[in-house]
């Protein structure tokens, strides 16, 4: 009766096998970092608001809500800190996280936004596609690059010519195609 169709993500052999486990203690540390971050953000908002000279004659100026929200952030941050050290945290028993894959996906996105204006949409998006595919265990780099290129080219054509949007073709390409522009 039941037919399990090929589950495409089988476990793969990996070389970075051992750094995956995140313990309950690091979950607590993570929650503490979030709490501390919120407190810091609250402080930043309060300081920045204090330093901004106020304009306007309204009954309630533009500074009230930033102060309220920064106060809220500090209070919530404190209560998260309390939870981190004394209360219940998520996945207190630990959670396996493949941080290498996370770093690769994040790097792919960073490369895309760093290169987008110079190289243009098609090359930078192809790199993004290949990086994310690799992070999800896709090992055939050339196939992934080819599919990424096809998808990037398709979206470029469809959105720029079909829907009138402005995906960048890249300053390098622009310089090559119109040499007398400068």
């Amino acid at each position: 009766m039941v037919g399990a169709v090929a589950a495409p993500t089988g476990p793969q052999k990996t070389v970075w096998e051992d750094e995956a486990m995140t313990t309950g203690r690091s979950m607590r540390a993570g929650e503490a970092v979030l709490g501390g971050g919120l407190i810091a953000l609250g402080g930043l908002i309060a300081v920045e608001t204090m330093l901004t000279p106020s304009v306007g004659r309204a009954v309630v100026g533009p500074a009230l809500f930033p102060y309220l929200i920064s106060g809220g952030l500090v209070l919530v941050g404190l209560s998260l800190l309390r939870e981190a050290f004394a209360g219940a945290v998520a996945h207190a028993e630990g959670l396996e996280l493949d941080l290498w894959a996370v770093a690769l996906v994040a790097a792919g996105l960073a490369v895309q936004f760093l290169l987008l204006d110079t190289l243009g949409w098609i090359p930078s998006t192809t790199i993004l596609f290949a990086a994310v595919s690799r992070a999800f265990g896709g090992r055939r780099l050339l196939v992934n690059l080819a599919i990424g290129l096809a998808l990037a080219a398709f979206t470029f054509v469809a959105f720029n010519y079909g829907l009138g949007l402005n995906l960048p073709e890249g300053s390098i390409v622009e310089r090559l195609t119109s040499p007398d522009a400068e």
Partner: peptide, 22 residues
């Protein structure tokens, strides 16, 4: 549902960045 996961998530991020940029 059978799209291989590497390509599915890579595609999701391509369209996410497209949406944010445009």
């Amino acid at each position: 549902l059978l799209i291989p996961r590497p390509w599915l998530y890579a595609g999701i991020l391509v369209f996410s960045s497209l949406g944010a940029y445009t």
